[in-house]
Design a protein around this nucleic acid. Structure first.
Lengths: 69, 69
DNA sequence: TAAATATTACTGCCTTAGCGGTAATATCTG
DNA sequence: CAGATATTACCGCTAAGGCAGTAATATTTA
């Protein structure tokens, strides 16, 4: 997961879903600017904004640690 | 990953690491208030703040989707 | 129990993410 | 190519996240 390009990952999934940035923004309930920022790997976006996008694109998030849970 | 309690997950890892909230905040380069908010599952925190905490605690993030990568 | 430490909560200030509107490119499509 | 569509970029405004300081509880430890 080092240097993982989340922006590109999301971009690919958005296009695979046949959505424009504006459509994705509307579905996620956020602004188009934020979608653009996320795909450009802006790190200071809000966690819930990112989650909303991942949810629309059916992308799951997993937290892995040596202290397996 | 439905209804995953990230706040508690982080709380457990912080204690396993023997860190107080203030120590974790300092190591992550963020304020103690933010660490508190994260452990309380505040969703509107910034993505980079959360990442900084996960990094200190050696927790990896993985994004999973049907369109396997 | 008492003292020390940690967590939770609240306050006010400052910074900035998020936003829509707009426009300039870039890309797709007939 | 020309038109339509999409992406990228920039602009101010506003709401709210982040912060240190402080204090009230809660927890731990001697």
């Amino acid at each position: 997961m080092v240097n993982f390009d989340l922006g590109q990952f999301i971009n690919e999934h958005r296009k695979a879903a046949g959505l424009t940035q504006i459509q994705l923004a509307d579905l996620a309930g956020i602004g188009k600017t934020t979608v653009f920022d996320i795909e450009k790997n802006k790190k200071s976006v809000r966690w819930d904004s990112l989650m909303a996008v991942l949810d629309v694109l059916n992308i799951d998030v997993q937290f892995i640690s040596p202290l397996k849970k």
